[in-house]
């Protein structure tokens, strides 16, 4: 319980803070909360189960599109959430069955391929507006700040749910199964773990949270197109956030999301042109310098030797 006290304090702050924020600050904070949830979601499959789902953004795009299409057909926003989840889970199960048999980089690349294939299909789908994308009905409210606060809280609810799920995972038989799978799949099989089922479940849970975030995102931004919501760079950002914070921990992904999104935001506002260059450089440096995450770097006191050691371990 003790280690959850500081996060709880942060949560209280997150809940009461919106009225004190400018529109700009609220937008940044919303983006941070959104990415924190996406990262917590990818952590389930990539962190705990060790399956690097490089194409996890596919569920984000699906959620966004299901909500957009249904709302364009007169459905209320909340009514679109269940279909959004169901679509993502069905897809995770159907695609997961063959794709999760692959290991390591083959799975990573295959999931990326799935993502791009789905993007190309949506690009040709009339009902989804094809390459032009879809516009969603605007959320009505007394003023923009009220509207944006509403979306902020929606994202925050999903974030809290994903954190609660991960805490449960840590102390649960399911979580133990996933961790065993990550370390040694044959060993896990011999321990009586139904690995195909567990991997598919892990991906499905990951899909649920990712799709929910996608649904809210579509309504928030109110315009989506395939290139944006299926952009592989979103997956990679989730991955880097997870790495920076520390994979297969409850709060690591959140720390990573805060750090990277804040850096990205500062860079984005100051140097719009070189945004991608800085992001690319951060990604490369993260892999080289802190492959085990920030938390690992600072446990037991920071030292430069640790950085050098990280490089030495992986260099040739």
């Amino acid at each position: 319980m003790k280690k959850h006290i500081i996060p709880l304090i942060f949560l209280v702050i997150l809940i009461i803070i919106p009225p004190f924020l400018s529109g700009y600050m609220l937008r940044i904070l919303t983006a941070v909360v959104m990415f924190a949830t996406l990262t917590e979601a990818i952590n389930i499959i990539a962190g705990y189960a060790g399956y690097p789902a490089f194409g996890n953004v596919v569920f984000f795009g699906m959620g966004a599109y299901v909500t957009a299409i249904l709302m364009n057909h007169g459905f209320g926003f909340y009514l679109t959430l269940i279909p959004s989840i169901v679509t993502a889970v069905l897809f995770a199960v159907v695609i997961g069955f063959p794709v999760l048999r692959l290991r390591g980089h083959y799975f990573a690349i295959a999931s990326l391929g799935v993502n791009v294939a789905v993007m190309e299909i949506v690009n040709n789908l009339k009902i989804a507006g094809a390459a032009e994308g879809l516009t969603l009905p605007l959320k009505k409210g007394a003023n923009p700040h009220v509207v944006y606060t509403y979306f902020y809280y929606l994202f925050l609810v999903v974030l809290v749910l994903s954190v609660i799920f991960t805490i449960w995972l840590e102390k649960n038989r399911f979580g133990f199964g996933l961790r065993a799978i990550r370390v040694d799949e044959d060993g896990a099989l011999a321990m009586g773990i139904n690995t195909p089922l567990y991997k598919t479940l892990a991906w499905s849970y990951s899909a649920v949270f990712t799709a929910l975030v996608g649904s809210i995102y579509a309504y928030w931004i109110s315009y989506i197109d395939p290139e944006t919501v299926f952009d592989p760079i979103i997956s990679v950002k989730m991955f880097v956030m997870m790495l920076i914070g520390g994979a297969s921990t409850v709060y690591g992904p959140l720390i990573g999301a805060v750090l990277l999104e804040l850096i990205a935001e500062v860079v984005w506002s100051k140097f719009v042109n070189i945004h991608g260059i800085v992001l690319g450089a951060i990604i490369i440096l993260t892999v080289i310098l802190i492959p085990k995450g920030f938390l690992d770097l600072f446990t037991g006191g920071f030292s430069w030797r640790r950085l050098v050691q990280n490089i030495k371990e992986n260099m040739i």
């Binding site: 038989r173 133990f176 199964g177 961790r179 896990a188 321990m191 009586g192 773990i193």
Partner: peptide
């Protein structure tokens, strides 16, 4: 202990 728990969770 966690290693052994895996066995306890999933075994007979």
């Amino acid at each position: 202990l966690e290693n052994i728990m895996v066995g306890a969770f999933f075994g007979h």
